[in-house]
Structures are given as structure tokens and as C-alpha cells.
Design a protein around this nucleic acid. Sequence first.
DNA 1: CGTTGATTTGAGTAAGATCAAGTCGGGTGG
DNA 2: CCACCCGACTTGATCTTACTCAAATCAACG
Lengths: 244, 244
Amino acid sequence: METGTPCTLCPLRRRRGFKPLDEPALAALQALKRGEMTVPAGGAILSEGETSCRLYTVLSGWAIRYKSLPDGRRQIMNILLPGDLVGLQGELMAAPAHGVEAVTEVRLCAFARSSLWDIFRGHPELGYDLTWLAAHEERLLDEALLSVGRRSAIERIAMVLVHLYRRAAAVGLERDGTVPFPLTQTHLADLMGLSPVHVNRTLQALRKRQLIRLHDGRLAIGDLSALRRVAEYWEQPAAQRPLL
Amino acid sequence: METGTPCTLCPLRRRRGFKPLDEPALAALQALKRGEMTVPAGGAILSEGETSCRLYTVLSGWAIRYKSLPDGRRQIMNILLPGDLVGLQGELMAAPAHGVEAVTEVRLCAFARSSLWDIFRGHPELGYDLTWLAAHEERLLDEALLSVGRRSAIERIAMVLVHLYRRAAAVGLERDGTVPFPLTQTHLADLMGLSPVHVNRTLQALRKRQLIRLHDGRLAIGDLSALRRVAEYWEQPAAQRPLL
DNA sequence: CGTTGATTTGAGTAAGATCAAGTCGGGTGG
DNA sequence: CCACCCGACTTGATCTTACTCAAATCAACG
């Protein structure tokens, strides 16, 4: 665990799309920061059932939040991108019922979980932001549940690709019409409640229709509106989000 | 909209399972309360896409929170029971992307949404509780997503029955080994991502195995541990929850 | 090279959807 | 009282989507 960049210089915070924070709040946040941490690709950030005394913000890299059944079936609940909070989800102070695993190498900004309470007391606006983030995460889950419960395989895949493209672009990962895409087809399967084989065939169908391109770890969308139409997906304009 | 019971006398608040609130916090809450409201069975509490300036707590009755696709397919995100908050989910101040509908007659306690900010500023402990509730809801969604994504039909139905039984019992709805169960099989289908016909056959299978009984609107569980085993479901002990 | 993980392809199958009736019970109006 | 209607629940038959199993390909890497 190293000290890392001070919050005032955090490169993420500069990005459009993140709500600017005023000087005192930033200072308070800095005071709570416990350092930075790097987890290698494939490494565990949180283990299912194990309590962590830390709370993290993803600074860079991709991670997955998942739950699994005793027999090994696994469901990915969400993909974590830079700016996302790790560890808020599981019942504020209790053991999380989910694991978090790095997909690529992940850089994290760590806070002491016990300082949560200080945030609420000392900086109500940060407490509000925290709740905003929780409500936002819930909205992502709603969308995922709708997909898995009611969309067909091709709709689900189209949906998740549009959605991840937008999220990645929103945190500045877009480069000439592509975003990095480190997920394997097995990840997509576990994310959308499908088998890996079926994901493969579905991706082929989308490629054949020229809707997407997927080359050396990057994703490009051929025809956004057509892809959205396939997914029956109309996203709401993204509000500026807080960053802790 | 009537004035209703003062928060200090709220019958829900007496129940074991709800965290007691101290005098000043209770008074603050009372000050924000805008009255009570009754919605008939089948009535809309929130419409998809429509902004509401209110925030509600369910006092009695059952409701569903759902999203739907343009072609009419519907996914229920959660069942709302007494003590649950309505309207926190959708991006704190923005239009909710979901609807909420009464299943039975529902009695609601209303707050002005604009007072959310006052809560955080004036009563950090209430702000914390709010976040706790959001994190808790997220946990419910996690469980639902795992079910719909990775559990078989019989596992899903077993799971949801165990889960709803516990939740209903936790808010005092249990009477000699049964809880009220106002959901139709179509509700269960929309909740678990199945067709109504298949829900019917699956319920029959559970009944044949003596695991559940479902009579005149009440649910009884024949063999809890067996039902849990079917569902591959091990729930964590319920912590005391806050009530707003 | 041999190994390892990801992707691809093919063949057979099963879980659950869809379609179509039909039943049951509780109102409602004549 | 009875005919009717409506919604929820049942049942049977058929069909489709997506799963499973198995094996081949491919690229990266030591």
C-alpha cells in the first residue's frame, strides 16, 4: 500500500462527467485516504463472505463484482470501471455477500471503512454523494435484472455492449471510436446469465450484422442506433456523478 | 392525503427488527412528514418515467417495483413490504426509470423529496440510515439477479418463497406458521423471469413434495430446511434495520 | 514445441416458452 | 335465483431457445 497521488491532483477528478468537489470536502476526503493499492489481473479485491475494513474507489482498470452458488455457478452483478466504489454495496458495516475480482490490473484508492461515519457527520454533502452513488448502482442493477429476466440472448448482448461502451467512454477510455474491452466471453456469459458457447454464437450474429467489431481487446460499435434497437434499450442522459 | 399518525406512535416502529430512533431524530422526521396516503389494490404509486416530488415509506400492504420493455415484457425488481422506502432507488433527484404498483391496498407515509438534503445536513445519522437502506436494497437486487441469472426454475421459486416468507415474518406478518401472500402466479413469473404457465407447474412440484402450502392468500412453508436446500439459499442473519 | 486459456464449430438435448382450451370461484346485473 | 363475466389458475401439446458435451483451432508464452 503506497501513499499515492493527493486527491487534489487525482487525474480522474478532472474528467468531465465527474462532479467538481469544493476545497474543504476535498481536504476532508484526503484526510480519510489510506493510500493506493494495485491488484494484478485476476487477483481478488474482495472475497465472498470475508469482511474488509476498507472501502475502495477504482482509479484505473476493470473489475467484476460477483456472487456464486455452492456448486460453482457464478453471476456477475456489475462491471466496475474507474470512478466506481467498491464495498459500499454490502450492508454498510457487515460482511459482503459478494466477491470482487480484478479483470485487468486494477489500481485502487483506499479509505478506512470506519471513517464512513465521519463522512456523514462532518461532510453531509459527501454523505449525500455516497447515497447518490448507491442509488446509481441500484439503477445499474435494475437494468441488469431486466436484461437477464426478460431480454433474449441477442438483446442482452447488444444491451450490455452498448452500455459498457457508454460507461467506458464516460470515464475517458474512448480512442477513435473504440474502448478497451478486457472481458472474456465467459465473463459476458456470467454477466448475462448465458452459457459461454451461446455468447460466442450471439456475438457472431452481431458481427455478421456489422453491428459491432471486437479486435485485440477493443470494442467498436458499427451502428449504434441499430444496436440499441436490437437491445430495446434507451438510456437516459447521464447526469454528472460524484466521485469519492 | 391525510395527516395520519405521528411518527412517535408509528406502529411499525415498535416492531423488533427496526432500529430504535432517538427523540430528536424522530422529531426531525416528524417535521418532514407530509401526511399519509392510501392506494387501492392495483393502483399506481409511481409511474415509469414520471418524476415524483415525494418519497414514501410503506406502512402496510404489498407493492411491486418493476420496469418494462416497449413491447410489454415486464420484470419486477423487488417486492415492497411495510418499512420499505419507495423512490430512493431512482437517481436521488431524477425521474425514476421504474414504476411502483400496489398489489394489495397500500398505506404510505409521505415525505417531500426536497427535504432529503435537510436530512443529510441536519441529521447525519438519518442520512447514514438512508444509505444503509440503499445498500440493503442493493443486496436484495443482488440476490434476485443471482436467482434469475443462474438458478433453475424450481430453485428460483423455492428461493423467492423462502425469502418473502422471512421478509414478511420480519415485519410481523406471521400468524401461526403462515404469512399473507397476495401475489398472483403472474407476479411470480414477472419477478423470476419465467412464464406464468411454468410458474404454475413449478409450484405444483413444490406442493407435491410437501415443501409449501398456498391457501386462500396465505403461504406456509412445510419444510424450511428442505426448501432452502432446493433453492441453494443460505441467508445471512438479519441485522436490525433503520426505518424512516 | 508443449502448455494453457480463449474462441470456435457441430450435434444432440432439455428446460422452459408458447398456444390453446378448459376449470373454478367470486362478483354483477337481469 | 341464475346467467354471465372476469381473472386467476390448470392442463395438454408442441415448439424454440439456449444448454451440454465434445472436439478442433488459435494465439500467447515460457
